[in-house]
């Protein structure tokens, strides 16, 4: 693999945003995702390779470490920031069609629930693994998901909830999505949710962590 892409993957994995960033301490003073992405593009590395061989492997490693409790939310946020800083340089290539994302993932916290840290982590991780993410925010009624599906045919849906009492909202939304768009895949997650509940409400997958969503997407639509 191109040495720059190896370095880029490390920048994402450890959350090195740019040269000026003090984090992580062991990479202080080194180029970050910002500079290395620019250098890779300038040296002729295709944007698709930067995404697929630099950014995505780094983000995947973060997802696995987060699952294994080896890193915590702030480190994931740092990695996501490094990723998004690099993506700024790649945006024109996605816009022109020269580089392509794998598919679209629509995510929101269900109606009756304002918690969004978990939802944001999933969104960042999925985006970092090469998908376009449509983030509907929090307290989302079924109509909002249905409208987003109409605008993004073929997209996979992610429903997030933190409160035990908003699981009923998750069930209602899943059923409405499945009634209107039977082929649409629905992933559910959040502290009170488990696979038994997923089965009961007719969703397609329960993901206990962000990497679980990525793995499901990679299986189904990548």
């Amino acid at each position: 693999m191109n040495e720059l892409l190896t370095k880029l993957a490390e920048c994402v994995e450890f959350g090195k945003i740019n040269k000026a960033a003090p984090f992580p301490p062991q990479m202080k003073g080194q180029d970050g995702a910002d500079e290395i992405t620019r250098q890779a593009l300038d040296s002729g590395v295709p944007a698709q390779d930067i995404l697929g061989e630099g950014l995505m492997p780094g983000m995947e490693r973060v997802g696995i470490k987060f699952r294994e409790n080896k890193v915590f939310v702030p480190q994931v946020l740092m990695s996501a920031k490094a990723m998004s800083t690099a993506m700024v340089h790649l945006k024109p290539y996605f816009a022109s069609g020269e580089a392509k994302q794998k598919g679209t993932f629509i995510i929101g916290t269900v109606q009756g629930d304002l918690h969004d840290i978990g939802k944001n982590l999933v969104a960042m991780m999925v985006e970092g693994n090469g998908y376009k993410v449509v983030d509907l925010g929090t307290d989302c009624p079924a109509e909002k998901y249905l409208a987003a599906i109409r605008e993004n045919p073929g997209a996979v849906i992610g429903l997030s909830a933190l409160l035990t009492t908003t699981m009923t909202s998750m069930e209602k939304i899943t059923r409405e999505i499945k009634n209107a768009f039977p082929e649409t895949l629905v992933a559910v997650g959040g502290a009170p949710v488990n696979d038994d509940f997923r089965l009961k409400i007719g969703a397609d997958v329960y993901a206990p962590d962000p990497q679980g969503v990525v793995e499901f997407l990679n299986t189904k639509i990548a």
Binding site: P22, P74, Q75
Partner: peptide, 14 residues
């Protein structure tokens, strides 16, 4: 600990 570190080992920028 919510940030992932013991208080005495909290690195920058945290």
């Amino acid at each position: 600990r919510d940030l992932g570190y013991e208080f005495d080992d909290l690195p920058e920028p945290f």
